[in-house]
Every structure is written in structure tokens, then in C-alpha cells.
């Protein structure tokens, strides 16, 4: 573990990313303390620029505090990102494992099914799903999970295909272990590194997707999210730039930090690869 941290630390960007990400987490955790009450409540006069009348980031067209919106929105964004990624990983890892381990006909079947999802543009599919199932937090999470599992399945399948032929898997086979215990006990632990890296990037893209859906008005109408904030500020952007810019910055920082963390994880989990890429040895 110490070794892992030492390798992770080598990537300076990743350390910055981790710090930023922890800040976002802190903001989300402290939201009810920093901004007690609902972010939907009117807190001051409408269209107050940042800094006036104690409004740190200004107010929107209905006098709601933008800073409170961002803090409370962080909770929703992170939650959506995490939960949808967990579901996407569940589906993707299981299908990828089946395809990669069994091979042959099962592989063909699963991969054609995966390709079916990959041929549809993911954002269009997400909009469609949310629109059909009426916008709510559940349907948004479900839609994001449904459009983001195919890459996981492909990565896991590729890892399983190469690991399946390795001698230690054959040795487990000769020992008479069951298929399930070979897949879970022998192959999966060795395929974890790319899955972890992919997961950190998926959280980032899930946050982006959720924001994009909210921006289009397809978010949960009862929850304050970053995308909703940008969406509501869109029509008055020339009048009140702060309404869109600050939530946009929040998305930018969070997604950037997740990507940096993902890259750092990838370097730390594949030290040899990182060195070849010319990172400090």
C-alpha cells in the first residue's frame, strides 16, 4: 500500500487532482452546514452580482443563492456519478467476464449485444430513456448506467481473454476448481487495475452526462444540480454571467480532478507502462 502511494505520488498532476477531488467531497459533505435550509429558497434580491449583500457567488433570477446551489448540487452530482458507475461496472464486469472466460458462442452473443448498445449514440439514448421514464433521480441514474457499461464489458473481456490462457489459470483448472471460483478468485483480481482506472473516468463522464441532461431540463425537478443551474442561467447569460459560469467551473474542476486521479491510478497500478511512457523512473 505504501508502495502504491509512492508510485501514485510520482505523478504530480494526480496529486493535485486528488486534492481537488477531496475539496469537492468536503464541499458536498459540508453543504447543509455551510448553507442551511433548502437551496431553492429565496436568499436575496434577484440578479445580485457575486460579493454583493453577502452573496458570495451572487443570486439567480429568483433570488436563490448560487453558492448554495453549487454546494448542494455537488452532493447530487457525486452521488449520481458513483451510483451509476457502480451499476455500470456490475453489468459490464459480469458480461465481460462471461464473454472473456467462456469464449466461443457465448462471447459472440455477448459482444453482439454490447455492440448493439455501442452503435446508438450514448447521449441520444440517455435522453430517450429519461424522457420515456419521466425525469427522476432513479431514471437519470439508470439511463447513465445503461449507456456507460459497454466499454467496461469490452475492457474486461479483453483482460479475461488474455488472462484465461495464462498458466496459473490452467493450473487452477487442473486443481479442479469450479468455474466461478477461477473467475472470481484467480482472474478477476488480476484484471482489477484497468477496471479501477476506467471506473474513475466513468464517474467523470457520468457527472458530465447528468449535467447535460439537467441542462436540457431532463434532470430530477426536485433536486438542485449543476446542470440545472447552468440551464436556468442560460437565457440571461449576458445579464448575469455568474449564474452559469460558477456551476460550469464546478463541473470543470470535478471532471478534471477525476481524470487526473484516473491517470495517476493507471500509472501507479502499471508502473512498468508508466516508466516506458517516460515518466520519472
Amino acid at each position: 500500500m505504501r508502495d502504491f502511494w509512492r508510485r501514485y505520488r510520482r505523478n504530480k498532476g494526480a496529486v493535485v487532482g486528488l486534492a481537488l477531488l477531496l475539496l469537492v467531497f468536503a464541499l458536498a459533505a459540508a453543504a447543509p452546514l455551510l448553507f442551511p435550509g433548502s437551496p431553492w429558497d429565496m436568499a436575496g434580491a434577484p440578479f445580485l452580482p457575486p460579493g454583493e449583500m453577502g452573496m458570495l457567488l451572487g443570486t439567480d433570477s429568483l433570488g436563490r443563492d448560487v453558492a448554495a446551489g453549487i454546494a448542494h448540487g455537488a452532493r447530487i452530482s457525486l452521488m449520481v456519478g458513483a451510483v451509476s458507475t457502480i451499476f455500470a461496472l456490475g453489468v459490464g464486469v459480469s458480461l465481460g467476464a462471461i464473454a472473456g472466460y467462456l469464449g466461443g458462442f457465448a462471447d459472440d452473443l455477448v459482444m453482439r449485444f454490447t455492440e448493439f448498445f455501442q452503435t446508438i449514440p450514448s447521449f441520444v439514448l440517455a435522453i430517450l430513456l429519461v424522457a420515456i421514464f419521466t425525469p427522476s433521480i432513479t431514471s437519470v441514474i439508470a439511463a447513465i448506467a445503461i449507456v456507460s457499461w459497454p466499454p467496461v464489458a469490452r475492457v474486461v473481456r479483453a483482460e479475461f481473454l488474455s488472462l484465461r490462457g495464462r498458466e496459473f489459470v490452467q493450473a487452477a483448472e487442473v486443481l479442479g476448481k469450479s468455474r466461478l471460483s477461477i473467475v472470481v478468485g484467480d482472474i478477476l483480481p488480476n484484471a482489477l487495475s484497468p477496471i479501477i482506472v476506467l471506473a474513475s473516468l466513468m464517474v467523470a463522464s457520468a457527472i458530465l452526462l447528468e449535467s447535460a441532461l439537467s441542462f436540457l431540463g431532463l434532470g430530477d425537478p426536485n433536486l438542485m444540480t449543476w446542470g440545472f443551474l447552468i440551464g436556468s442561467g442560460r437565457s440571461v447569460i449576458r445579464l448575469a454571467w455568474w449564474m452559469s459560469v460558477f456551476p460550469g467551473l464546478a463541473i470543470f474542476v470535478t471532471v478534471l480532478s477525476l481524470n487526473l486521479v484516473g491517470e495517476g491510478l493507471s500509472d501507479a497500478l502499471n508502473p512498468r507502462l508508466a516508466r516506458q511512457r517516460g515518466g520519472a523512473a
Binding site: 493450473a171 479442479g176 484467480d186
Partner: peptide, 29 residues
């Protein structure tokens, strides 16, 4: 019927301790 493999670098699961690797067969049985 048991087997010994060619490549000692590939035939042991890198994420499993030596004790587990040796004991897992009998445990399975």
C-alpha cells in the same frame, strides 16, 4: 493427476500468497 507447468513466472497467480497457492487445491477438494 497433476501437472507442473513450463513457465514459473506465469504459472503462479501473482496476487495469491505461496501458502494459498499450495493449499487451494486440497481446500477445493
Amino acid at each position: 493427476v497433476q501437472m507442473i507447468f513450463q513457465d514459473p513466472y506465469a504459472s503462479l497467480n501473482p496476487r495469491r500468497t505461496v501458502g494459498d497457492a499450495i493449499a487451494e487445491g486440497p481446500i477445493t477438494h
